[in-house]
Simulated assay, not measured.
Amino acid sequence: MSNFNTLPIFVALVEAGSFSKAGEQLNTSKSAVSKRISQLESDLGVRLFNRTTRSLTLTEAGEEYYDYASQAISLAKEAEYAVGRLQAKPKGKLKISVPMTFGRLYISHLIPKFLALYPDIQIEMIMDDKRQDFIKQGFDIGIRIGLLEDSSLVAKKIALCRSVICASNAYLSNSGIPQTPRDLSQHNCLYYSYFRAGQDWLFHKKADKKENDFIKVTPKGNYRVNNSEALHDAALAGLGIANMPTFIVGPDLVNKKLTQVLTNYPQPIHGIYAIFPERRHLAAKVKVFIEFLQQEIGGDTPIWDQGLS
């Protein structure tokens, strides 16, 4: 068991794919990582990696060693989480991944309240709409909206997420009001380029909400952007018709700055989820953060839908 302390370094190197990146993750030098791996190979009497100037790949022995090493690291973490659950107070660093706009509107202003409740927790929050490599970047919890990809991550619903097709009164006065989803082909559709559901906008017929019976429309327009707040600004300015979640446009629908159209063709309702690595014992810091969000913004009618019909 003399090499047990080298296992995290070995696993980090496999997952990072290079000595320099592994060194950055471990807050040590490239040469230090290389030295520890060479010593490990010497102790085991087998080569674990095939090295070239451009690539680093596992040998057959390395692949088998990684299977066991990664399981050992996972079990060690499970032990830490199991002990952590017995703590009187949740504590430690909580690394969170949240979408930019949702994080700014509904998460960031809640952080001071959460930290006042749990002063022994330290939060690092990454706000970004790009898909994150959750495990490799070491996140404890993430917030995801809409369709979820199949993965080893566990998802727990925080709230419902409803989307609407909407536009400004000025745009509708100039361009007309679409009566069916097919009419959108005659309109300037504003498109969010990180839309997880794919290129198409999906609609139900209100009288026949069969789960997989959709009307699909591929939106076309002169503005495509990877930030939903920028899309929101364009809709308010009268540039076109947008497909927006009510957690962004709810207040504008209430005060009539935007008007919902195609109300007879509602879109599928998705969820807002907390995701976290699958573990036998959920860390106390993760558990209390999920419960906090459910209490503050969750429910059958989330706070952003209150006041909407």
Rank of each mutant, 00 (worst) to 15 (best):
A274G: 02
I177A: 05
T218D: 06
V286N: 14
S31W: 04
M100S: 08
G307E: 10
M127A: 15
H187P: 04
R224C: 04
I135Y: 00
A159F: 00
V46N: 05
K130P: 00
T101C: 08
K35H: 14
R54S: 14
I248L: 15
T57C: 03
L26N: 03
L110K: 03
I158R: 11
L86G: 11
G146M: 11
A197Q: 04
L75P: 00
E296H: 04
K35E: 15
K21G: 00
N255P: 10
L172D: 07
Y65P: 00
Q199Y: 06
N227T: 08
Y68E: 13
S309I: 03
I37C: 07
L231D: 03
T53M: 12
Q267G: 02
K287Y: 07
K257H: 10
K130G: 04
S163M: 06
V98E: 08
P268Y: 04
D150L: 12
S168C: 02
H187S: 03
E124I: 14
S309R: 04
K285S: 11
L75I: 13
F49K: 14
I135V: 10
K157N: 08
D233F: 14
I135Q: 12
R104C: 00
S228M: 13
S97V: 04
S38I: 06
G45K: 01
A155Y: 08
K205C: 03
R51K: 15
Q25P: 01
R279Y: 05
L117W: 07
D233Y: 14
A242G: 10
Y118V: 09
E211S: 09
R144A: 12
I290S: 02
L202S: 06
I241T: 11
I272R: 01
I121P: 08
T180R: 10
N5I: 12
P277S: 14
F114H: 01
I165C: 14
I241M: 12
V46P: 00
I290R: 03
N255A: 13
H270C: 04
E291V: 09
A283P: 11
S29T: 15
L282F: 05
E229D: 07
V83F: 01
K256F: 01
E60S: 13
I135D: 12
K30S: 15
G176I: 11
I290H: 02
D43H: 05
H187Y: 11
I9R: 02
I215K: 01
K157R: 13
P8S: 02
A207I: 07
Q132I: 12
P277V: 04
Q186Y: 09
A116K: 08
R280D: 05
I272P: 00
A234H: 06
D128G: 06
S31V: 12
D128S: 12
L258K: 01
Y223T: 00
I145L: 14
Q39C: 05
S97Y: 07
S163E: 12
I165Q: 13
P181L: 13
L202D: 04
P277N: 09
I248G: 13
L56A: 11
P268S: 10
T218H: 09
S34P: 06
T6E: 08
N3V: 14
L7D: 02
Q71F: 11
S173D: 11
E41V: 06
I111K: 07
L58M: 15
T52D: 13
